[in-house]
Design a protein around this nucleic acid. Structure first.
Lengths: 190, 190, 190, 190
DNA sequence: GATGAATGAGCGTTCATTCAT
DNA sequence: TATGAATGAACGCTCATTCAT
């Protein structure tokens, strides 16, 4: 683990995300992080000026990264429902493949650390989804409700889907993800 | 002999629920609770033998209360969709009116305290909802999916609805709650 | 256990001696004593004005009782060595039969409570033994050493004998107690 | 990097031994130790991971040291009684010169801390004394009794001798220590 | 006299953070 | 930059004792 500079920062971040995933926030101690990264506790303070800073920096980074990543999704010229489904699947896969990171930001969101994250970061929204919803409404395919309502709902849906997969109640295959997608789709479709 | 103040236990519980709502579990300190109730920290230990006991006692009480309350709901002779909606509304209202308590048990559920709650309490489930889902499936009105999937989804929906109302994005009126109900209903209906 | 006045005081004392024997001083808590006597902790303070008072009262009582008891021993007109042995045996038996009480005062003696006992009690010595030693010296049968030295030694001897019996290394029978007596006697005899 | 003060650990140990000697175990508080060493209470935990660890580490160290020291005593070519006396005197002097340390281990032995000391340390016995007793028995010079009885007695004797010297009843000179030795010797000699 | 409630003072311990090198 | 030592500020909890009836 003993690397230089940027690598060390990276290592600290990864270890922290790992530990938050395994032990929850309450169980994350600076000394433990240091030990796992194989540095001294005081060295942590070379890279992050406090525990708050460590946590909220990671959260900020993750939030940015997540928004950006989804932004990169191809805006294909498929028919709306198919495009919608593709994006839905992208998100399901993204959450599954980034469990720890998602767990981290979910935990941050319901902790006092969340308030320490700059507002502009907290309000970052994937315009991808918003644009998509607008497109659907324009085509009369989805209900004409506030985007914030639809987005919140889809997000809850997504989270629940991932939880079900994590808990093995659902499997990550064509049939079952399609079922879940249809539940979401039926909810919002006109 | 000094008489035990019947309201003191109640006060401790309420203050604790309040603080968990505002600061989360991590932020609940015995000394702070005591201060808010205006008693000595050691007096807390007259009523609860430890912090664990305090938290899990409250959780146990709430869990019992919630299950019982919902159990008392009866809408047996209405047509299915109306019955379903009545129960949905009951839950929305219940969660709104017991925001802090619901927040408490939600937080407990994803904390180590949960394991301290007696299994028979943890396993209390509102058969109300499960029975309802079965009835709907029998009548061919709702999708033939696993109850655990449908229930998880409806629960996420419900939580999200309440959050939206809390954040003033939605209002707790006939029209808007109806809208939200329809989203849920459309998701699961056949 | 719930009796009146003198009996209650007695009960408190007995329970305390018991608990000191079982758990040592560190483990004796006022609340525990009260529980075992089946009274309220505050009632303890009706009988003893503090924990210090409780402990040192018991110690004082025991010390007095022990001195008095031995004083009552017949001053028979046996030849010296036999008389000496009889008294030795009396003490061995006394210690065995009053294990808990002896343990109590031994523990008190090496605790801060000892200083709280009135000096005149602490200095109580069994004149029985001192007289006996004087008699032996007069008869030229035992070494002409300071009584305090001889007494201390015999006491240590006695304690050790009792410990050995307690630990089953020795048995409380004619042969083995005689052996131990002879060790003591050989030590001090001229 | 701040260097660990080599003397600080030593200082903690010495202060602890001192306090146990003066106030007994019950009176030893981490905060008091820290104050006497002039460090913060939390610094204690840099050197010892708990109070139990502090006490039992000290006890372990002392036990090792004592056994080793006595082991180094060698008087192989003297006649038995002289050798025995030399060793007796060695122990008297050792106990006098290490009063506090001896008090410490004596107190530990009758406290719950004793169980925390590794068994192999607890079982360390000075074979010096046992070998000596065997040799004496072989030569027909001392009574043919169980070593555990003889050793227990000599130990009690020794302790009492040291107490008498401590209390100024006896002086640590040739004549008086000789007197005490003879008491012990007469007790066990054939 | 008897008692359950109440508490102040203190305890051992933890931990994010700073110090000193 | 890196670090082991050091620490202040808490924390959960205990317990002898007092309060109020």
């Amino acid at each position: 683990m003993k690397q230089k500079d940027e690598f060390k920062r990276e290592a600290i971040i990864n270890v922290t995300i790992d530990m938050v995933y395994t032990n929850g926030f309450a169980g994350v101690k600076m000394a433990q992080i240091a030990k796992k990264v194989d540095i001294s506790p005081s060295t942590l303070y070379v890279y992050f000026k406090s525990k708050n800073d460590l946590i909220s920096s990671i959260a900020t980074d993750l939030l940015k990264k997540i928004t950006q990543t989804s932004q990169n999704q191809m805006h294909s010229d498929l028919p709306f429902k198919l495009k919608f489904k593709a994006i839905w699947l992208f998100y399901v896969n993204f959450e599954i493949n980034n469990r720890k990171e998602m767990s981290f930001i979910n935990q941050v969101k319901q902790s006092p650390y969340y308030k320490m994250i700059p507002l502009e970061i907290r309000n970052l929204k994937s315009s991808l989804v918003l644009d998509l919803l607008d497109e659907g409404k324009r085509q009369g395919l989805i209900k004409n409700l506030d985007n914030s309502i639809l987005a919140a709902l889809l997000s809850a849906f997504l989270t629940e889907t991932v939880k079900l997969i994590d808990s093995k109640t659902l499997q990550l295959n064509e049939a079952e993800t399609n079922t879940m997608f249809l539940l979401a789709w039926d909810a919002i479709k006109n």
